[in-house]
């Protein structure tokens, strides 16, 4: 079990290195989420897996690696499609929690 974890870490490391060497975007090669802010009013997230929690003051978005916790006031989902989500409201903090 311990060996497998080590292999995974090694594998990711290789992917990461390959992306950096070939100058490829990591969000595509490593399935990492891509976040685009418009000030503190709007947040656009690509490559997410789903919504873990949805509330007025906190929204948790599940991604391939970690959970993104968006805290703020009057938060709402502007639109949601298969691979992208746009949030709006008074965003106060964004934290990455848990993960592999």
């Amino acid at each position: 079990m311990k060996n497998r974890v080590t292999d995974n870490k090694l594998k990711k490391s290789i992917l990461e290195k390959a992306s950096e060497t070939l100058d490829l975007p990591k969000n595509l090669t490593m399935q990492l989420p891509r976040l685009i802010f418009t000030g503190h009013r709007e947040l656009y997230i690509e490559n997410f897996r789903g919504i873990a929690e949805y509330g007025d003051s906190c929204i948790r978005i599940a991604t391939q690696t970690k959970q993104i916790c968006i805290c703020g006031r009057a938060l709402a989902i502007k639109c949601i499609a298969a691979e992208e989500i746009t949030l709006e409201g008074e965003i106060e903090s964004v934290t990455f929690e848990g993960g592999v």
Binding site: G50, G55, I77, C79, I80, A81
Partner: peptide, 20 residues
């Protein structure tokens, strides 16, 4: 409700103007 949104999302249903 979160699960509802996730299933919609995976089935390709586009949702907008979501608010609590």
């Amino acid at each position: 409700i979160e699960r509802f949104f996730n299933i919609c999302m995976h089935r390709g249903i586009f949702l907008w103007d979501i608010c609590r």
